[in-house]
Design a protein around this nucleic acid. Structure first.
Lengths: 188, 188
DNA sequence: CTTGCATGAGACAAAATAGTCTCATTCCGG
DNA sequence: CCGGAATGAGACTATTTTGTCTCATGCAAG
């Protein structure tokens, strides 16, 4: 799944459009293509030159989001690290990509590659939770689906709080790990 | 903020429309009014008779959601209970209203009454967190905004998991409390 | 039974959005 | 500097959604 450069079209414009779509749709999933083009600083016609229609843009954005997240996680991940360390590294890598993450979560994409990539990420998360349980970091009686759901939501809320200036970016990942594993209880 | 019955119009139709809107928009915030009317089992014209336009329906729905949640929480709340008991009671009362909750969270409503009600709920949550800290249930070093955010998201995710059959409805509230206060760690 | 009124269905208009096309302008490589 | 190609702006059309209106139907109260 390469970048799929169309012959001749400027990559900078394409990139600007995708970025604008990610940021806009993270907050307002119904934003029109006019708004996307405006935010991207690009003419509406140019948007249609790069992407054949709304759906094409959606799947292109989904691909790029998956790619970026996959790369970010891959970079941050020492494969022989403990499950807990991997969890921490994952939060560190993914929280700054919270807008991309939320896009993938809520946008249903028809494209098969995207669906496969999404499934792969889900499987990865399930495997991580399984390892966390095996290493004693997660109680075995908690449904794994619940844990995965919590991890998902933590990424989004953490990004959100950082974006609103309520939490320092540097604290986000550790807060996530702590919240998930130890909770926010007073007796530590 | 009364029910605002319009003279003559059947309350059952109004109620059906509001319910349909809540359920539909919880999953797909961009659903058209045709879809709402269809889901409500009501003619599109009838919908416009009861609500002057999309915005009117949105604010009416928001009012009703606020009302229902306020009532549900009020019923479940023993005012002299411990903060932890109040937290638990709140989850018990609100998780089944997850669709209403998510609607209020994501739909920006211009109406002043709705905004005031929303602020009141937020204040209530902040006060609860403050009490939780005072009673030693929440670590004082955690930002209160983070705690409130977690509570918000817990309600939504819990409802979601219950709706998808991944978690039993009876377990949801206690899972929420445990997740928030003790976390999902293995060493209890 | 009859009358009144809300409803459902559908036609219709208006507005927003999506998508296409043209043309002058600007940018970039050579 | 020059030429080609992408871009921006705008006109234009199609489709979707919204909102209004009319009229026949059905229900419910009297």
């Amino acid at each position: 799944m390469g970048p799929e450069r169309q012959p001749g079209l400027r990559p900078t414009a394409r990139r600007a459009i995708v970025d604008a779509a990610i940021r806009l749709w993270a907050v307002n999933p119904g934003a029109s293509l006019s708004e996307v083009a405006l935010r991207a600083g690009v003419g509406r016609a140019t948007l249609h030159r790069h992407f054949h229609g709304r759906e094409a843009l959606v799947t292109a954005v989904a691909r790029i989001c998956l790619e970026e997240m996959h790369e970010a996680v891959g970079q941050a991940l020492a494969p022989d690290a403990s499950a807990r360390a991997r969890l921490r590294a994952m939060f560190d890598a993914v929280v700054p990509l919270g807008d991309r993450y939320s896009f993938l979560q809520r946008e249903p994409v028809a494209d098969e590659d995207v669906a496969a990539g999404y499934r792969a990420q889900l499987d990865w998360a399930v495997a991580l939770v399984s390892d966390l349980k095996a290493e004693g970091d997660i109680a075995p009686d908690v449904p794994s689906a619940w844990v995965v759901g919590q991890i998902d939501q933590l990424v989004w809320t953490a990004w959100n709080q950082v974006a609103r200036g309520r939490v320092a970016a540097a604290d986000a990942a550790s807060l996530c790990v702590r919240t998930l594993l130890e909770g926010l209880g007073g007796k530590r």
